[in-house]
């Protein structure tokens, strides 16, 4: 029964090796989906290319459904995985800072790394900026960020429980929302690209 490493069913070396191979799959798919092209990424905000939305929601929902079923069958113990705690204030503020970063810089960290190693010079510059950003944060952590980062603590919160509904029902609603969004963005993308101005 999973997760295997946290329950000491597999050792650390094997765990790291598995992580490496999982990373290869993730990186391969990000590149194959076109996530190294900054214009394809920005397209989600301007209507000419919704690849980000399609890949992102397909991945999150696949994982949510898979883990939900595995948890039901006792194949994985969700209480033993790394479950992100919710600190709503820094997540909201940090998320808005990242929104600026995304729309100005045209990448997020994962996509910039894939883009940089496959030759995109703008992505190399983005990573340089990101490292400076992390250094700046690290050296100003105690005076500027510590208090904000620890505010709004809510512990481990499952959104379905928080809304007072069953996890399965939440996943169903999320899937229906995503399916409607996929349908809508396909129409929007056709209209926007038909004008001819926004072809990549």
């Amino acid at each position: 029964m999973g997760p295997l490493f946290p329950q000491e069913i597999i050792g650390e070396e094997l765990n790291i090796l598995i992580g490496f191979f999982i990373g290869i799959g993730f990186g391969f798919l990000l590149e194959a989906a076109g996530f190294t092209n900054t214009r394809k990424l920005a397209g989600v905000f301007y209507g000419y290319d919704f690849v980000v939305l399609k890949v992102f929601f397909s991945a999150a929902i696949t994982s949510a459904i898979g883990l939900f079923i595995m948890n039901q069958y006792g194949i994985i113990d969700m209480s033993a995985i790394f479950y992100p705690k919710t600190f709503w204030i820094p997540t909201l503020v940090g998320g808005l800072i990242m929104a600026f970063g995304f729309i100005i810089g045209g990448f997020c960290p994962g996509t910039s790394m894939c883009a940089a190693v496959t030759g995109k010079i703008d992505a190399m510059v983005f990573i340089g900026g990101a490292l400076i950003g992390v250094f700046f944060y690290a050296y100003t952590y105690e005076p500027l960020w510590k208090e904000l980062r620890d505010s709004g603590a809510m512990g481990k919160v499952n959104i379905a429980e928080w809304m007072g509904i069953d996890s399965g029902l939440f996943i169903l609603i999320l899937t229906l929302i995503a399916a409607s969004a996929f349908y809508a963005v396909t129409i929007i993308q056709k209209k926007v690209t038909a004008k001819g101005d926004y072809q990549i």
Partner: peptide, 20 residues
């Protein structure tokens, strides 16, 4: 703009406990 965007993402991802 790539450098500024990266800088903001670097700060935001640390504050928000992770990125996209």
């Amino acid at each position: 703009t790539a450098a500024i965007g990266g800088l903001l993402f670097g700060i935001g991802s640390q504050l928000g406990r992770g990125c996209t």
